[in-house]
């Protein structure tokens, strides 16, 4: 197998004395999609934020292509040019039209010619079904549309790794799939990704590997088949169970597959 793109070694991080990440290690190889699941507050988002330097780590090491990127300050933007990230809250720039949102990074940060990027951006918008929205302000878009634009914005930087932090958590239910289908499309195209999500069926569909995080440590690491159908740890089983209860209340059509132990 190829060298891992990302190698996280025993990182620790605490806020106000309480440990959020308590020794997390993981590797992500090229083209691999790793999905991180776990109960709220288990440190999933913090893990992603540490990877691209939005949070500093207390100890441990993060390497991108064997180059240490943790603890850097000065040229952090160079690291972030290689690692894309999309948030739950979309965070499009409200004062710029969609196209300007897309061009800002490639043109200003990477210094690429505007016309070239513009062509590429239109193609990408087309791919996610938003070509006609290039000239509007973000506030006129729906949540699902905003999030698709945010994905395109991240992808236009040609990142080597894409981090997705609960990108559907703020969406109305009917808009979730339009966004996740884009992600699955990216996965098929060979994009390397680390994804934090609460959508278990999506996780199962897209993941090469599942990491189960609880209380700041990785408790289980398996392929999706194993994780969702015969989890190794009791805690993972209980975590999955909680979705089953939720599903039953939602309606009958959602249960079944996620249900590990009947």
């Amino acid at each position: 197998m190829s060298e891992p793109i990302l190698r996280v070694q025993d990182i620790r991080k605490s806020f106000d004395g309480s440990g959020v990440l308590r020794g997390v290690s993981l590797e992500i190889r090229e083209g691999e999609v790793v999905v991180i699941v776990g109960p709220s507050g288990c440190g999933k988002s913090t893990l992603l934020r540490c990877i691209n330097g939005l949070e500093t780590i207390d100890s441990g090491e993060i390497r991108l292509h064997n180059e240490v990127i943790s603890g850097r300050k000065k040229d952090l933007h160079l690291v972030r040019q290689k690692i894309g990230m999309v948030f739950q809250s979309y965070d499009l720039f409200p004062h710029m039209k969609v196209m300007d949102n897309l061009l800002l990074g490639p043109v200003r940060a990477l210094g690429r010619p505007r016309e070239e990027v513009e062509k590429e951006a239109l193609q990408m918008l087309d791919r996610v079904g938003l070509r006609e929205k290039a000239d509007v302000y973000p506030r006129t878009l729906s949540g699902g549309q905003k999030q698709r634009v945010a994905l395109v914005r991240a992808m236009l930087m040609n990142p080597e790794l894409l981090l997705l932090d609960e990108i559907t958590a703020a969406l109305d239910p009917e808009m979730v799939s339009e966004v996740l289908n884009v992600v699955i499309d990216l996965a098929r195209g060979g994009m390397t990704m680390a994804i934090v999500t609460h959508e278990m069926r999506f996780a199962e569909a897209v993941a090469d590997r599942i990491l189960f995080l609880e209380d700041g440590v990785i408790l289980e690491e398996s392929d999706p088949e194993t994780f969702f159908h015969s989890p190794k740890t009791e805690r993972a089983a209980r975590f999955l169970q909680s979705f089953t209860y939720a599903s039953r209340r939602d309606g009958a059509e959602k249960q079944s597959k996620n249900n590990p132990q009947g």
Binding site: G53, H77, R80, Q81, D91, F93, A109, M157
Partner: peptide
């Protein structure tokens, strides 16, 4: 989060 989003597309702090 706007500042974070800006940072995430590789802008320098000044940009």
């Amino acid at each position: 989060s706007q500042a974070e989003a800006g940072a995430c597309i590789g802008l320098t702090p000044a940009q």
